[in-house]
């Protein structure tokens, strides 16, 4: 199993733009260790639309150049220690966004169009610090109507965790449609799953409706409890105690290093 995950991690090249899902949608924590061992750095992380433990660990491991996100935190366990430290030291670039702007950018990529307009955002400091976001006049309005344009976000690779895939590589994502949105927008998608089933997920309408077709999925690997310490919807709950242990440990670089040494040893 670990060799499969290491093979997935080898798809990541330095400088790539990597899309990662929000903490409740299906984070492939199982890939974090292999990604760190693989060591491809200078990454541009796109959080869909916010980030948590995985982002914090990748930043702490020094693999990240830029984080494009609407927020990064450990939820109930508090702030993201490595991310916050890196921001304070100026060690990473943050492209602060707002959730629907990330969705808009992915949607533009999905449709193969250069940008997507969205409401809100005007006269914010977010806009002031995002020269890549533009303001245009709504050409359909009778009067003045400025509207923000979000450029397409085209990640190189999307990585997430889901309950199941079938032998053909179709992945069941249920109602977590942001996982599909990530996959549609990304050049390639790699997925870890709790289990691989023999039935064809596209073979009946009930499961087909919640299935991301193999068309978008480059590789699938088995990783039981692969979201841990995050939970996976319909499968298991978040291990808040473990998140708190991490949050306490990672308050210092030394503590983060010690925690990750144990974590990487377990994943070996």
């Amino acid at each position: 199993m670990q060799s499969d995950l290491r093979a997935l991690a080898r798809r990541i090249e330095p400088g790539m733009r990597i899309a990662l899902p929000v903490d409740y949608a299906g984070v492939s924590m199982a890939m974090t260790g292999p990604m760190i061992r693989h060591g491809a750095g200078d990454l541009h992380l796109v959080c869909v639309p916010t980030g948590g433990l995985q982002v914090d660990q990748l930043v702490g491991a020094g693999l990240v150049r830029r984080v494009e996100t609407s927020a990064v935190s450990l939820g109930e366990a508090g702030g993201a220690p490595c991310f916050n430290r890196a921001v304070g030291e100026g060690a990473i670039e943050v492209r602060d966004a707002t959730c629907p702007a990330i969705h808009a950018g992915l949607m533009a990529a999905q449709k193969g169009i250069p940008y997507m307009p969205m409401r809100g955002v005007l006269e914010t400091d977010l806009l002031a610090h995002r020269p890549d976001w533009r303001v245009a006049d709504n050409p359909f309005a009778e009067g003045e109507d400025p509207i923000v344009l979000i450029p397409a976000i085209r990640p190189d690779i999307a990585i997430f965790h889901a309950p199941m895939a079938d032998r053909a590589g179709n992945v069941w994502i249920g109602r977590r449609r942001e996982l599909a949105a990530m996959a549609y927008a990304s050049a390639a998608t790699i997925v870890t799953v709790e289990r691989i089933v023999d039935d064809n997920l596209l073979g009946n309408e009930m499961s087909a409706a919640g299935t991301l077709p193999a068309l978008y999925v480059e590789q699938v690997a088995l990783a039981p409890r692969g979201a841990w310490p995050y939970g996976l919807w319909g499968e298991y709950a978040t291990d808040v105690g473990e998140l708190r242990r991490y949050a306490a440990a990672a308050r210092t670089p030394q503590g983060f290093g010690d925690y990750m040494a144990g974590f990487l040893k377990e994943a070996a």
Partner: peptide, 16 residues
């Protein structure tokens, strides 16, 4: 900004 201290999680969906 950008080297905010303390840094908080981020704007989430508020700007919209």
């Amino acid at each position: 900004y950008p080297r905010s201290a303390p840094r908080w999680p981020g704007s989430f969906g508020s700007a919209y």
